[in-house]
Amino acid sequence: MISYVTLSDNDLVAYLKDGDKAAFTEIYNRYKGLLYIHAYNRLRNQQEADDVVHELFTSLWTKRGELVLRTQLSGYLYQAIKNRIIDIYSHKKVESTYIVSLQQFINQSEAVTDHLVRENELTALIEKEIGALTPKMRVVFELSRKANLSHKQIAAKLELSEMTVKKHVNNALKILRSKLGLLTCLLYIGHH
């Protein structure tokens, strides 16, 4: 019987490629703690750090047959974690940019020439979150965003006051911001 604890990383990788679950478990036990600490130090969020480590090991197992190491296993795992963290920051930066852009568009309450391009980008990004808004808030928000109606037009169409329309739009933005988790220091990882 093989004692996986005593095997080198290279031997473990060879067993892993053959689908050996015990070798995978040993790699996991050997590196999960260090990778979590590294991820947490960058993300400052326990759930995100857990998720990124879990996704890395899931990917390592599912793609074990295609695994090609050009460096030591530890170097490969750290680079993979770093890449995943960069992806998280990039995604959040994109979300932040689009939500700020949407806020400016709604605050101006006027047609913007790139509205259709903006709408398509925003739709893909936040459609799921919009679906979770209260029905009235969602209707007001979608009339503002999709139909490009002014607060006054929406108020007339829905028989609401302009103040109520504005309140619904602002509350929707507040909810979307909280759900999309805007960060204050998006480029932190790029400088470390």
Score class of each variant (00 low, 15 high):
residue 157 K to A: 13
residue 97 T to V: 12
residue 18 D to P: 01
residue 107 N to Q: 11
residue 25 T to C: 02
residue 32 K to Y: 09
residue 174 K to T: 13
residue 43 L to N: 00
residue 38 H to D: 09
residue 182 L to N: 02
residue 41 N to G: 13
residue 161 S to G: 14
residue 75 G to F: 10
residue 121 E to M: 12
residue 30 R to Y: 02
residue 52 V to T: 08
residue 152 K to V: 09
residue 73 L to E: 09
residue 122 L to M: 14
residue 13 V to L: 08
residue 73 L to D: 10
residue 4 Y to D: 03
residue 180 L to H: 09
residue 43 L to R: 00
residue 75 G to D: 08
residue 52 V to F: 01
residue 106 I to K: 03
residue 46 Q to Y: 00
residue 36 Y to D: 01
residue 51 D to Y: 04
residue 161 S to V: 02
residue 139 V to M: 13
residue 153 Q to C: 06
residue 68 V to K: 13
residue 27 I to A: 09
residue 21 K to Q: 12
residue 43 L to H: 00
residue 130 I to E: 11
residue 124 A to F: 11
residue 124 A to V: 12
residue 118 R to H: 15
residue 41 N to F: 02
residue 89 Y to Q: 08
residue 22 A to D: 13
residue 124 A to K: 15
residue 156 A to G: 00
residue 67 L to H: 02
residue 141 F to Q: 03
residue 45 N to S: 14
residue 50 D to P: 03
residue 78 Y to S: 03
residue 72 Q to W: 04
residue 118 R to D: 10
residue 13 V to R: 05
residue 40 Y to T: 03
residue 155 A to C: 12
residue 190 G to D: 11
residue 70 R to G: 13
residue 45 N to C: 10
residue 189 I to Q: 07
residue 180 L to N: 14
residue 156 A to R: 07
residue 74 S to V: 14
residue 79 Q to G: 15
residue 129 E to R: 03
residue 67 L to M: 05
residue 114 D to C: 04
residue 137 M to I: 06
residue 37 I to G: 01
residue 119 E to W: 13
residue 98 Y to G: 03
residue 96 S to V: 03
residue 169 V to R: 15
residue 37 I to M: 01
residue 122 L to N: 05
residue 8 S to A: 08
residue 167 K to E: 09
residue 188 Y to A: 13
residue 160 L to A: 05
residue 8 S to D: 11
residue 111 A to N: 09
residue 72 Q to H: 09
residue 168 H to T: 04
residue 154 I to T: 12
residue 69 L to I: 04
residue 86 I to R: 06
residue 131 G to P: 05
residue 85 I to T: 01
residue 108 Q to R: 10
residue 189 I to P: 01
residue 85 I to A: 03
residue 50 D to A: 02
residue 139 V to I: 15
residue 191 H to D: 12
residue 30 R to L: 09
residue 83 N to R: 14
residue 123 T to C: 06
residue 63 K to F: 07
residue 83 N to Q: 05
residue 33 G to P: 03
residue 68 V to T: 14
residue 106 I to D: 00
residue 97 T to S: 08
residue 189 I to H: 05
residue 99 I to V: 11
residue 156 A to F: 08
residue 22 A to P: 01
residue 181 G to F: 07
residue 14 A to K: 15
residue 42 R to M: 02
residue 9 D to W: 06
residue 15 Y to F: 15
residue 34 L to I: 12
residue 146 K to I: 15
residue 144 S to F: 06
residue 169 V to F: 00
residue 54 H to V: 09
residue 182 L to M: 14
residue 117 V to T: 10
residue 56 L to K: 01
residue 100 V to F: 10
residue 5 V to T: 11
residue 132 A to Q: 12
residue 69 L to A: 07
residue 96 S to N: 04
residue 183 L to R: 14
residue 98 Y to W: 15
residue 16 L to C: 02
residue 105 F to Y: 14
residue 16 L to E: 05
residue 101 S to F: 11
residue 145 R to V: 15
residue 97 T to R: 09
residue 155 A to I: 04
residue 11 D to G: 00
residue 119 E to P: 00
residue 36 Y to T: 06
residue 54 H to D: 10
residue 179 K to V: 07
residue 102 L to Y: 08
residue 28 Y to G: 04
residue 143 L to D: 07
